[in-house]
Design a protein around this nucleic acid. Structure first.
Lengths: 152, 152
DNA sequence: CGACATTCAATTGCGAACAATTAAATGTGA
DNA sequence: TCACATTTAATTGTTCGCAATTGAATGTCG
């Protein structure tokens, strides 16, 4: 009976999806770490590079919208990527408020070196691709519902 | 054809479960923020309090194992909780290496004030409890597989 | 045109998160 | 017992993440 209660107690750590997500994010980060170290990237920097590998010469703001990050996070991060000669930051000539982020040759070249990363993560997850796709879709749907509440 | 390829490209941001988890964790954090502000807690501090509300007078190391955090994170965090008069830190007399974390009266009292938090999160998630439990179990299983790889 | 609001990036300050190191306490084995 | 390894927290340094503010550029409306 006490056991039954504890498995339903919403104030128990083990019952919280938020902690599951929080701790899974950290676990992913730890798996990524050695892979990204070889590329000289952190995980958030890797995310920015993924965005730029899809589309180059993007305003900082667009990167922020895709990754749900603001300028307070991105400005110093992008300066570090620039210091590593992976991107160049230039003010837009049409709108001087915007900063455009473009890949350097090194930044482009890194895409090939990063090609094996997703496969390593897949192996570490020990899941089938369809399982992961299903989970991903569920988590994204949950995230979007949460973000909708924040906007309200 | 190009469209078909892009939905399978493992290097695309939208195809990565890791980013889904990463961005969902941030979304949860943003939903928690206003709720926890009223308690004077950050989310990681709230997690520590959840652990202590289940069992008091716990070694720092045990908290770290439950939350997957190390002393580099917990030591300053616990000092802030102590400064807020929510916990007391004392060296164990049996083993002087260990620091025991105990709730103060204020720390205990906060549990009641925090009782409504999980319900607010549930509402924001806009899911049924069984759906959330199923997702949670899947994510925990994935996390544990990832953590197993790190140990190897 | 000119006052005003809006947009965007940068900055500041604080709290995680973690790697690497240090130091003290404890355990172990010759 | 004594040398050595292990355990545990604390510390240092770097990077995120975000709230709040600032300042410049742009948009809007009378």
């Amino acid at each position: 009976m006490a056991r039954k209660l504890s498995t339903l107690d919403p104030q128990r750590l083990d019952n919280q999806i938020c902690f599951a997500v929080y701790s899974a994010a950290h676990a992913f980060n730890r798996v990524y770490k050695p892979l990204l170290d070889r590329l000289g990237l952190t995980y958030p920097q890797y995310l920015v590079m993924l965005v730029l590998w899809e589309r180059d010469d993007v305003p900082l703001k667009d990167i922020g919208e895709k990754l749900f990050l603001d300028s307070g996070t991105l400005t110093p991060l992008l300066k570090r990527l620039e210091a590593a000669h992976l991107v160049k930051r230039t003010r837009s000539s049409e709108d001087e408020r915007q900063v455009l982020i473009a890949l350097t040759a090194q930044g482009h070249a890194l895409k090939d070196k990063a090609r094996s990363v997703p496969q390593s993560i897949l192996a570490a997850s020990d899941c089938t691709v369809p399982e992961l796709v299903a989970m991903k879709d569920e988590i994204v749907a949950l995230r979007d519902r949460l973000n909708a509440v924040i906007g309200e």
